[in-house]
Nucleic acid binder design. Sequence first.
DNA 1: CACAGTGTCCTATGACATTAGGACAGTCAA
DNA 2: TTGACTGTCCTAATGTCATAGGACACTGTG
Lengths: 135, 135
Amino acid sequence: MKPHVNFRSGVPVYLQIVQQVKAAAAGGALRPGEALPSVRALAEELRINRNTAARAYAELESEGVIETRQGAGCFLKANGVSPLKRAVRSDRLAAELDAVIVQAHHLQVGDDDLKSLLAARLEAFRERQQTRSAD
Amino acid sequence: MKPHVNFRSGVPVYLQIVQQVKAAAAGGALRPGEALPSVRALAEELRINRNTAARAYAELESEGVIETRQGAGCFLKANGVSPLKRAVRSDRLAAELDAVIVQAHHLQVGDDDLKSLLAARLEAFRERQQTRSAD
DNA sequence: CACAGTGTCCTATGACATTAGGACAGTCAA
DNA sequence: TTGACTGTCCTAATGTCATAGGACACTGTG
C-alpha cells in the first residue's frame, strides 16, 4: 500500500486515495482485517493534511470498504456481500461502460478492439491478484 | 440536441453539457457541420448563465469536438482522424477500463458478466446510431 | 452601410468543495 | 495511570463553479 497523489490532476486528493485503496483491496495488495496506515502516517507520507487523509478514510467507510475504530485505526473489511441488488449493480456499471464507449468512439477504437482490450485488462487484473495472494 | 442538466449531481453543469454533446456526436444525434444551439439560446433553454454555456463550448473546442466561429456560431467538427497514436489511445481507454474493473470487483460482478454487459451496451449504442442516421 | 445575431472578455458576487491547522476524545500497552 | 498512538470535530483560508451584467468584436443579411 504505497499510494501516490497528483495535485494537478483536478481530481480531489481524497478521492484519489479512495480509488487507490479500493484498487489495492480489489487487487489483493490489501488483505481483509489488515490495518491501513494511520491518518497521520498517510498524511505525512503524502505530504497532505491529516483531514484530507481522514476524509478519504471516512468516504471508504461509508462505502463499506474499510472499518474505522476511533483510537485504534482503520482496517480493511472482509468482502461482504454487496448490499445492492444485482440490477442496481449492473446499472451502475452500465453507466460507466457507456461513458467508455463514447470515449472509444471519439478515440476511434472499434467495438472488437474495445472488447479485446477489456479481456486483456481483465486478464492482467487477475494475474496481479494471483501474484498478491501467493506471497 | 436537447440537453438537460442536474444541478444537484455535484458534477459541474458545464461538464454535463460537454458530456452530452460528446455523446450526441458519437451517437449520431448531431451530424458533422451541424450547428449547435447558440450560447444564448442554450443558456436560456437550460436556465443557466451565458458564461456557463460558453465555457462548455470552449471546453468542447479545446478537445477538438466542435469548431466555434466568432459571430457565426458553433458547429460539430467532422470526425477527423484522431491526432493521437493508436498506442496512446489504447492506453487512455485501458486506464478507464481498469477503473471499471475495480468497480466491478467491489460490486461483485464477475468477469463474464462484465464482458456480456459491455457487449450489450455496445449493441444498444450501435442501434441508437442506426436510428439516428435513418432519419 | 445598418442591424441583429453570434462568440468573447471583464469584473464582481455568492455558494460550495477542498485543504489546512489546532484542539479534543478514544484506545492500548508499559 | 501515563504516554504515545489512534480517529474526530471545529474553524479558517483558498480555489472552483455558477451567476450576473456590461461591453466589445465579429459575421451574415439586407
